[in-house]
């Protein structure tokens, strides 16, 4: 029986390309590992990636190029943020106008907000959505009459017009509207839903669901419904009053929200990432915001410059 280490890497590589001669092939087929390689070759043949959205990407590229040629002031963002924000760059270079992508066959309508930017939009049925910073909402306008459904990543406040089922999908689960006003915050590994008026049903990826009435809240973590999560609920979503508030939320999420709100970068030791924070910070005063985040967590911050904060 032939052992694996006797097969040359190169021979194995040439086998996969069908380039071995008969003698080499026979030799290889004797090895115990051969059938395993065959199975691997067979199944990897069948792999594929999500198709690339060429048209959409080209439009985004054109936006970027136009932004450049106009010599618009380029807003500096940390590179990794810039990458994460992907398409929202187009918004920033495009002078902050709402960025509608339409007209590419069946592509949904997409509305994005950049860091530090909020936006209101009206859906085809006159339902209103207020989109918080660094968020994205997608819906299919053509199909709207059959199905009122949007996909949200980020945070938004919804005022839903009376009518059929209205559904908000997030990567962690589904929120179905039975009544009117509610807020959804979907960041990193969790989605929070607070009901302000009417009734809302929240369903997780496993199919567990709960119905919320005004001032009720629910949270989805990694696709699972958490039932005993009860933040204090004000009359309106806090972000609409210029405040970001958190109830038992990992510090990494809080810091990300701060970075997006103030458009800067924060360095913090990763050991603090999973510590839970309860509190709030204002959107109009960076030092107050930092005090309110750092003091209760017994952390210290240094403002290095306009765009970099170090927290220890």
């Amino acid at each position: 029986m032939k052992e694996e280490n006797e097969i040359e890497d190169e021979t194995l590589g040439r086998w996969l390309a069908g380039e071995l001669n008969e003698t080499e092939k026979e030799e290889l087929e004797k090895s115990e590992a051969f059938q395993s390689y065959q199975a691997i070759a067979h199944f990897t043949e069948d792999l594929e990636l999500e198709p690339f959205k060429t048209e959409l990407s080209y439009e985004q590229l054109k936006e970027k190029l136009n932004g450049k040629s106009n010599e618009t002031k380029v807003v500096k963002m940390p590179v990794w943020k810039r990458l994460a924000a992907a398409a929202s760059i187009a918004v920033i270079l495009g002078l902050g106008l709402t960025y509608f992508l339409q007209g590419f066959g069946d592509d949904p309508t997409t509305v994005l907000t950049a860091q530090g930017e909020t936006k209101s939009l009206t859906l085809p049925d006159q339902s209103e959505v207020m989109l918080n910073i660094s968020s994205k909402i997608e819906y299919d306008e053509d199909n709207w009459e059959d199905e009122r459904a949007v996909h949200l990543s980020g945070e938004a406040y919804f005022k839903v017009s009376k009518g059929n089922r209205f559904v908000v999908n997030t990567e962690h689960g589904t929120v179905e509207v039975l009544g009117t006003e509610f807020n959804i915050r979907n960041r990193q590994q969790q989605t929070e839903v607070i009901c302000y008026e009417g009734k809302v049903r929240v369903t997780d990826l496993k199919g567990q669901s709960t119905v919320l009435v005004p001032t009720d809240a629910a949270r989805l973590i990694d696709g699972e419904l958490e039932t005993n999560w009860s933040p204090s609920v004000n009359e309106k979503a806090d972000w609409q009053n210029g405040v970001s508030s958190f109830h038992e939320v990992p510090m990494s999420n809080v810091i990300e929200e701060l970075e997006n709100q103030y458009q800067l970068q924060v360095q913090m030791d990763s050991e603090h990432n999973n510590r839970n924070y309860v509190g709030a910070f204002p959107h109009d005063n960076l030092e107050d915001a930092l005090d309110l985040i750092c003091n209760p967590m017994q952390l210290k911050y240094t403002i290095q410059n306009d765009s970099l904060i170090v927290i220890k």
């Binding site: 694996e4 097969i7 040359e8 890497d9 190169e10 021979t11 194995l12 590589g13 040439r14 996969l16 390309a17 590992a33 395993s36 390689y37 691997i40 070759a41």
Partner: peptide
């Protein structure tokens, strides 16, 4: 094809063959 991959990465076809073989071994 290996030749195309080699050209895009600026390495020899032989290097591509070796990497393919190594990859198969790693996966197994």
């Amino acid at each position: 094809k290996y030749a195309e991959i080699a050209e895009l990465l600026g390495v020899s076809v032989k290097a591509v063959e070796k990497r393919m073989g190594k990859a198969l071994k790693h996966l197994r």
